[in-house]
Nucleic acid binder design. Structure first.
Lengths: 144, 144
DNA sequence: GTTTGTATTGCAACTCATTCGCAACTGCAG
DNA sequence: CTGCAGTTGCGAATGAGTTGCAATACAAAC
């Protein structure tokens, strides 16, 4: 069970990070962290809620939203608001990356491009700005 | 009055485009097109509504939304949903471009980068995809 | 011009994702 | 163990945008 082992480790690491930030660890938050650590995809809040309830059906959707906000401000998860859809979440353990969204399956593929990052900084500087954050999404269809 | 002249011409061009698409031109739509043509910024729907009402206070917000949808599907305006804010609109007369969003003033600056476009296509192809559309936004602060 | 059939409008009610108020509960520092 | 500030569940509220419906107004045909 390599996957759940890793997920367990990841969840533990996130708990540690939160504890050191003074965030209280409740039963609900542990359950949510666990589900997030296990998720290989980019679930939205209701889907996360569904999965969490399989382990603990006392967790409310409001708490899922509230917890996601806390986790986001603590840098433990990332929120992505893709076009025309509710926000989706992923753990922030992987280094920065951008996304390809499959328009047919809604599947999300991650990619990085140091070259694009460099160009972005360059463009911003040319306009007198520093990049604080950016969003790059490619809405795609399978090539055939 | 170079600006309003241009705006007049742009509004007329949009009307023409719509007429040829079989879109009925109402008083309300003309007023909205006029305001859009005059806008140098990227207003959101309520702001557009405010401006339209200065010329014709019978136009409702619902009609502004409905008209924007029509204009978008006809390719006459572009909708941009920047992070944490209602959608903003601009006429689709200019060629494709991406955006820098000033986090302090909320001002929007347009830019293009053929180089980034090229890299995007390349990355998508590498993953077996064709890019249908994309979104690239740089959230920035003035450099100092 | 007048008629006419359909597209469009204004209004208010509705949706959807997300947030909030509040009383009850519970981690966890002491 | 206690105490209490941080959390939770519930349902109500929010904000952006959409929609049903009856009234209206384009614009094509007379």
């Amino acid at each position: 069970m390599a996957e759940s082992d890793e997920a367990g480790g990841e969840a533990a690491a996130m708990e540690e990070a939160l504890r050191s930030e003074g965030v209280r660890l409740t039963r609900q938050r542990r359950a949510i962290l666990q589900v997030l650590a296990e998720a290989a995809d980019h679930p939205d809040a209701p889907e996360l809620h569904r999965r969490v309830q399989e382990a603990d059906d006392t967790v409310s959707l409001a708490t899922v939203y509230r917890t996601l906000s806390v986790l986001e401000t603590k840098g433990v998860v990332q929120r992505h608001a893709f076009e025309g859809a509710p926000a989706r979440f992923e753990t922030a353990d992987a280094p920065h990356h951008d996304h390809i969204i499959d328009l047919d399956s809604r599947e999300v593929i991650e990619f990085t491009s140091p070259e694009i990052e460099r160009l972005q900084k360059e463009i911003a500087r040319k306009h007198g700005y520093d990049v604080v954050s950016h969003r790059l999404e490619l809405y795609c269809r399978k090539r055939r």
